[in-house]
Design a protein around this nucleic acid. Structure first.
Length: 919
RNA sequence: GGGCGAGUGGUGGAACGGUAGACACGCUGGUCUUAGGAACCAGUGCCGAAAGGCGUAGGGGUUCAAAUCCCCUCUUGCCCACCA
């Protein structure tokens, strides 16, 4: 862009300035973090991106920009700042691209990384690029493998044949977190259950520690609560129910055995163990329910019930997780024909199966207490099962026969043998403790803490990931690859598509698969699963401390110097995924003695999203892409829709069985996450070209609070652009000492010669320093920008009134530039050097506010009568309580308003207000 | 159903329990001009000519004083949803 065009735009030459300073910063490596430093450390980390083909759009800047402001601010405050960036590049999107384009993802990733890096540089983000990492490089993923081996060594990585979530469309297994409403989070197709040998990490072993650690980290309560619930700790007991002998086939009646005299047990002494948080209600357990997948079901089912049980099981298998867990549906189940014995009262309880009992939680079996659990109650009513009340609420006498809902609340134990009469209550309740003691004496149960959290499924039947460093030997079984042989390098392959059997594409590469057993030297095969991408991001923050280490994952001393992350920035959507995994890893590595920190991030900040006004199908939240429309007069529609908020009739193309046609639709607009695929993406490149990166940065900071969503508007961005133009003009005036511009207001009434004007400007300067410092410290960027606007306005007025070369103007100009530096770094550095200073603002001291200069010498005091504003007074600072009250009462306005009232009481807040209570 | 948020002008948003609407966008009028994506000046919550009154989703409450704290209702966002 030529200078002439810049001149024509009437704005400051932002393109030239931004380019110049980006080159200077890079040449001087100003943003490099020092491993040895006398300055205190500050580690700022923004969650690293997943480079995809579409590159960055301005929505992504919602976290990178504030992260950069935090880093620059801390650096100016004298901290040795670590602000690194890298690429989380293993995983599906890159692989899908590769499949589509027939290229190896390893060729695409570096190109994407280059694009991202360039875009981030255009934004002027102060990353220490010497620490750039790429999770797909063998130098990185060999340490994934190393950590895997450590987990294996400690028994925390294991192979399991549990049923897994299978997406038939993507041909892959999904983690529980990747299943949304029983559907694949990526493609939306229904997830099936399939048994497959998988590698898992025993995150459940850290369940308690993961809950306890939450208390000492400064994360949003919402995120912490989500984690607590996800881990789902509940206290209760396990209870064993003995299964009774098969009913007599002769008469079809179950044979009631006397448990006291003979053994009621079937053959091998089968028992069903259940978990309950209410062992105290055991006397009210009138039946049991197993999940359809429970292993005992086939053994205990009687011949008469066999066919109905089998058909129920096959129906249940067909249902998606979404259907099964929809609690609005009526509960269904089938009787197995078998009975068990309630260990506390020897009652004969029928055993049912029902899909409301989940295989994955507890033992996959429950004791049903219909009187005190609503689900069991509904089930009992439907199938005419006994309802026995064992907790009587205060002042009531419930009867199972007439109950219309379960009573889950407190009360007194009744009909409960040895615990009769004890106060009943969940958790800390005495009755629960007493029941557990009693169970222990019977040998039929024990106290137990149950977690909802499941072990972390790490296996992927995918190409683009870290190979799992395990060898399967016919003779030795599962053998870990020796550390000295790491990395197990991901080979180049031709076909990335997984086979229809769901096995990893790596299984098709004999040179990879076939190997010698590290233990016996015999023929063996490599594990062909790769690791989930979440593995990479679970410890990358430690690698950033020591990214080039070829001997170890990271040096412990260096890691200790940097950890924990002081400010971690990322989206709320990672609350129970990444943010839980990385805490688990940090705790594990801590226990290995590899780092002092046992929590990765001392403080976590969650940014809001940036949304774009997107056309949607009326009555849904489904976006319609512009190319689907037959005609799409966007601007007109938006205007029309905004005016009367009524759907706009339109037409779109549809393709049914290969036949294209046009269908009428109704269109509305809604604020949805900016996205390339919805064609709502605006790139930072084009905005930087048009308005400059500084203006874009300022827009993102100013438009809404950090945690709130932004509704993207280029029109508003124009506002921060104009502000920067004004800053440029004002400070150039100060620098050049030029007289006020032609269109400045007449300086005749009051000029900077007046001592009060000078004092006022200096006050504003020092107040602004204090305000902006506090705001940046607390991520209140929007009000920080506003404070700068106010300061620049004060300076502009002062300059226009002829104060161009006054020292107070110089002081204000310097403060303005310094305070602006973290947010609009290019313009700030340019003006700073034009103001005659040396060096980069990144390493320049943050200004200090002088409280004496910031103090007001006059204060406005509000006078209220009965809380309503009646008058305002200006009093000198330091006016006493009494003087202030007297002045208020002396006010003419107040006198007249009080004329027919009696003063009852006067409240005085010095320097603030006087409230006169009168009637 | 549960958990956590949120509801303030035409718009984005400000407001330690103490002047509601800072700062912007937009809009209205004006100045200037090399007619620009300008710049500058003035105005802009609602009703009212004014005095004044009314105003922070709605209704109660606490308080000298409530957008802010408490209770109820409504609306809305996100997350989890048969967890025994």
């Amino acid at each position: 862009m030529s200078d002439e065009t810049v001149e024509e735009s009437g704005r400051y030459p932002f393109r030239e300035i931004e380019k110049t300073w980006q080159v200077r910063w890079a040449d001087a490596s100003v943003h490099r973090a020092e491993n040895e430093s006398s300055r205190p450390k500050h580690y700022v980390l923004v969650m690293f991106p997943y480079p995809s083909g579409s590159g960055l759009h301005v929505g992504h800047c919602k976290n990178y920009v504030p992260g950069d402001v935090a880093a620059r601010f801390k650096s100016m405050q004298g901290f040795n700042v670590l602000n690194p960036m890298g690429w989380d590049a293993f995983g599906q999107p890159a692989e899908q691209d590769a499949i589509k384009n027939g290229v190896n993802p390893r060729q695409i990733v570096p190109k994407l990384a280059e694009i991202y890096k360039k875009q981030l540089d255009i934004l002027g983000v102060s990353y220490d690029w010497s620490r750039e990492i790429n999770t797909t490089s063998p130098e990185y993923y060999r340490w994934n493998q190393w950590i895997f081996l450590k987990l294996f060594e400690k028994g925390l990585a294991y192979r399991d044949f549990a049923p897994v979530n299978w997406c038939d469309n993507d041909k892959t297994v999904l983690a529980n977190e990747e299943v949304v409403d029983g559907k694949c989070w990526r493609c939306g197709s229904v997830v099936q259950k399939r048994p497959l040998a998988q590698w898992k990490f025993k995150i459940t072993a850290y369940a308690d520690k993961l809950i306890e650690g939450l208390d000492k980290i400064n994360w949003a309560e919402g995120v912490k609560t989500q984690q607590r619930e996800w881990i789902g700790r509940s206290e209760g007991a396990e209870v064993d129910f003995a299964v009774m002998a098969s009913p007599n086939p002769d008469n079809g009646e179950p044979k009631v055995e006397n448990s006291e005299s003979g053994s009621p047990l079937l053959g091998l002494g089968d028992k069903i163990t259940v978990f309950t948080t209410r062992p105290d209600t055991l006397w009210g357990a009138t039946f049991m329910v197993l999940s359809p997948e429970h292993p005992l079901v086939s053994q205990i089912t009687t011949p008469e019930q066999k066919s109905s049980i089998e058909s129920y099981i096959s129906e249940a298998a067909k249902k998606s997780e979404a259907d099964r867990t929809d609690d609005t549906k009526e509960k269904t189940g089938v009787f197995t024909g078998a009975y068990a014995v309630n260990p506390v009262n020897d009652a004969k309880v029928p055993i049912w199966i029902a899909d409301y009992v989940l295989t994955g939680y507890g033992t996959g079996a429950i004791m049903a207490v219909p009187a005190h659990d609503q689900r069991d109650f509904e089930f009992a009513r439907k199938y005419n099962l006994e309802i026995k009340v064992v907790v009587q609420p205060e002042g009531e006498k419930l009867d199972g026969a007439t109950l219309d809902a379960a009573w889950p609340g407190d009360g007194t134990m009744a009909s409960s043998g040895v615990i009769d009469g004890i106060p009943a209550g969940k958790g800390e309740g005495e009755s629960v403790k007493a029941a557990i003691v009693h169970l222990a004496t019977l040998g039929a149960g024990r106290g137990k803490i149950q977690f909802r959290l499941r072990d972390w499924l790490i296996s992927r039947q995918r190409y683009w990931g870290t190979p799992i460093p395990i060898v399967h030997c016919l003779a030795c079984g599962i053998v870990p690859v020796p550390e000295s042989e790491l990395p197990v390098v991901l080979p180049d392959i031709e076909e990335y598509r997984p086979g229809p059997d769901g096995r990893s594409p790596l299984s098709t590469v004999p040179e990879f698969v076939n190997c010698a057993c590290p233990k016996c030297g015999g023929k063996a095969e490599r594990e062909t699963d790769t690791m989930a991408g979440a593995m990479d991001s679970s410890w990358y923050f430690l690698r950033f401390a020591d990214p080039k280490n070829s001997e170890r994952a990271f040096d412990t001393k260096i890691a200790n110097d940097w950890m924990p992350i002081d400010t971690y920035i990322g989206g709320r959507e990672h609350a129970v995924g990444h943010l839980l995994y990385c805490r688990f890893f940090t705790k594990f590595l801590h226990e290995l003695g590899l780092c002092d920190a046992d929590e990765p991030a001392a403080s976590l900040k969650n940014q809001g999203m940036l949304n774009a006004y997107t056309p949607i199908l009326s009555g849904t939240d489904k976006a319609i892409k512009p190319e689907e429309f037959v005609h799409y007069p966007r601007e007109d529609w938006i205007a029309a829709y905004n005016q009367n908020k009524k759907p706009i009739p339109a037409e779109r193309y549809v393709e049914l069985d290969g036949v294209k046609s046009v269908e009428p639709i109704e269109v509305e607009f809604s604020w949805l996450k900016m996205s390339k695929s919805k064609k709502t993406a605006v790139t930072p490149d084009e905005m930087a070209e048009k308005y400059g990166a500084d203006a874009l940065r300022l827009y993102i900071l100013f438009e809404a609070p950090f945690e709130s969503d932004i509704q993207w508007s280029e029109e508003r961005m124009n506002g921060t652009f104009r502000f920067l133009g004004r800053v440029w003009d004002i400070i150039m005036n100060v620098i050049e000492g030029s007289p006020s511009p032609d269109n400045a207001p007449d300086p005749s009434n009051g000029g900077p010669d007046k001592e009060s004007e000078v004092r006022a400007l200096r006050r504003k300067t020092h107040q602004s320093i204090a305000k902006v410092t506090d705001d940046l410290e607390n991520f209140r960027f929007n009000t920080a920008v506003s404070a700068l606007m106010i300061l620049s306005e004060s300076l502009r007025k002062f300059v226009n009134a002829g104060g161009t070369s006054h020292p107070a103007a110089r002081e204000a100009a310097e403060a303005l530039v310094l305070l602006l530096a973290p947010m609009a770094p290019h313009l700030a550095d340019e003006l700073w050097s034009r103001l005659g200073a040396e060096g980069f603002l990144y390493r320049t001291d943050w200004p200090k506010s002088d409280p004496a200069l910031a103090a007001e010498d006059e204060l406005t005091v509000v006078v209220q009568i009965n809380g309503k504003l009646r008058d305002k007074l200006v009093v000198p600072a330091g006016t006493s309580r009494e003087e202030q009250e007297a002045a208020a009462l002396a006010s003419e306005k107040i006198q007249s308003d009080l004329s027919c009232l009696t003063v009852r009481k006067v409240i005085v807040v010095p320097g603030k207000l006087v409230n006169i209570v009168a009637n």
